[in-house]
Amino acid sequence: MPSEKKSEELASRALEVLGRPREEFRSTLIVTSEELRSLLDAGSATAEARAARTAAELGAFAVGHIDIEKFSSFQQKGAAVPVSEAPRLDAASRTLRSLLELGDDLYFVRVSSGGDLRDSVSHGLGRAGRAFGAARTVELARSGKYDEEVHGGWLDSFPPSLWNRREWELAPPLIVEVDGADLRPGGLMEFLDGNQKIVLVVRGPAPPAALARLITPGVTVLQTEDPAELSLVAEAEGPAIGALMPPDSCRFVHVPATGEGRARLTVHHMPDEEPKRALGGISVFQQADALRHLATLAAGWGLAAAGDVGPSGDGASGPAGAATAADKLAAWILRQADLQEAG
């Protein structure tokens, strides 16, 4: 299907733009995995195995010059891991390696048509979150606090509801393909924490201002049609969500305040058409209400789009485009006022 192909293409563009957060998560996986490998090497080995390991680590220059067995008897013993816990550490190590082997697939989820966006995101993050689960398993095992009852499933899924502050800071980025008709982002609020980056690649008609509901002071929120603009999400400090929207959706960006005189909400485009049809279970009212919300926020901050340049330095909409957006926004606000009077 052409649209599917297009969304795949957009998803891979999104992947590209999210290169840095992806690389950071992968690096964290690698460093953790290597540390765990060292722990396993050091912890469970016999004296002979340790000597063999020492010989390997000292390399060829030591041959004939260093008595390896003796040398290995002097090295610092790593933190002792109870022998009984070794299998658990092995399992954690395998989990980390399997995540590494997943490569970029780790950062993708697809919401099947009619599926629940929130659940899919939770599932995707819970999958990458197994890295956190694995690390916690290791920590618990070596401190003797591991409890199968409580921690048993952590290597299979470690959902965001269990993440701590540090884990949120190291959160894996996620790219989500979702039908416009399933775009109910309200449930995503709980995932916008720490350093979480989420990109929604929206297929087919969608509520034009769906993400407006996510605008809160500390979160970067972006709706755009241009994958390159996703760099605003990738480079944002703190949590950020962006959606690649179908044509004639709202295009806006909200960035947490960075100082006086800098725009927080910039609206680049308002749709030409008002929502007329329900999309999936999303009613006309809900769609329009999101638009109203966006307009209210923009008006409330006195930023009627024109002339406001977000930190993006936004080249997508020149002054003319901005002016049009401003006009439309003004018109919108007026219309809403009329509607309310009429009602």
Binding site: A42, E57, Q76, G78, A79, R142
Partner: peptide
């Protein structure tokens, strides 16, 4: 040859 990761336990 790269040795072990530093012990940070």
């Amino acid at each position: 040859w790269q040795g072990s990761a530093p012990d940070m336990s």
